[in-house]
Simulated assay, not measured.
Amino acid sequence: MKIAFSPCPNDTFVFHALTHGLIEDAPKFEVKYADIDITNNLAVTPEGLDVMKISYAALPWVLNDYALLPCGGALGRGCGPLVLTLDGSTDPAALTGKRVAVPSERSTAYLLFRLWAAKHVPGGVGEIVVMPFDQIMPAVRDGRMDAGLVIHEARFTYPEYGLSLQVDLGSWWEEDTGLPIPLGAIIARRHLDLKAITGWIRASVEYAWQHPEASRDYVLSHAQEMAPDVAQSHIELYVNDFTADLGDSGYAAIEALLGRAAAEGLVPAFDLDKLKWPQVEA
């Protein structure tokens, strides 16, 4: 079976047991490590793998072929994307007509940014430039971009680049809706045994929590020279109760985000019932 997820600490922590033969009855998994922009686009092609980590914002394009699984992904509070600048401005109007770097056009981060900017940036931003998330902060620091939309460990490291926080989009979303932030989704092809896959992934999450030391070398080997304490902070932020099970509030957050986006024409219209598939409920 083929699976794709990022080399970020939360994903390698969660999927370590599954991909190292530590889950009973699970098949051997062939792993593709890929940035979220790659998996978002891969999922809409015939080359899409059996199981993939994509942005929740990309779900409307793939729900006919893939089912959303209720575990393994990233959804929570206090873990949203940030808009960073070099000039220290906290006035949203300062982004009017500016160049903004984003990690993917179909990322949840960019979708949240578009929803926020529509209300707070008069006249709209200027050029949007997609680039790998680890290149965004250097581009803003060096003046090649006016602002950057960042995710993952950038929450902890952006001061090292001399950058300032303009807005925490996760805080904005939580204040606006009262709901957690849907970030990364785990999907599987609908023709597969979704109940079994869900069980294997949930078991991998539980193994990771019960044996945190077991995955440490694996996590750090893929962490792009990240300091161990930053990697651990990354795991603690993005791996939470929603990773084991989305639950009612998790599904409510996903429906709120994608329902609002569809109503505003930012994603294709789709059947909300396809988000929660009876075969993969806990």
Rank of each mutant, 00 (worst) to 15 (best):
I23P: 05
Y110N: 15
Y238D: 08
L272F: 14
A269Q: 15
G170D: 04
N64V: 13
A17F: 08
A282K: 14
V129N: 09
K2C: 06
A185N: 05
V125T: 13
D271R: 08
R114W: 12
L42C: 04
N10Y: 12
K28P: 05
Q166D: 09
N64D: 15
L69S: 01
W200C: 00
L165P: 03
V129T: 14
L95F: 08
L194E: 06
A34T: 12
G259P: 02
Y218V: 10
C8W: 11
S107F: 07
G247E: 07
S55N: 15
D176S: 14
V83L: 10
A154D: 13
T177S: 11
G73K: 00
A185K: 04
V31N: 06
V102F: 10
N10G: 09
P92A: 06
G170Q: 03
G148M: 07
W200E: 00
L22C: 05
L272A: 15
V51R: 03
R99D: 12
N240G: 08
H222M: 13
D245Y: 12
I151A: 10
N10A: 12
V140E: 06
D217P: 09
A262T: 02
F5A: 05
L84D: 00
Q166K: 12
G21S: 02
Y56H: 14
F270M: 09
E47F: 12
H152G: 12
I136F: 00
I136R: 01
T45A: 12
D271P: 09
Q210A: 15
L163N: 06
P182N: 06
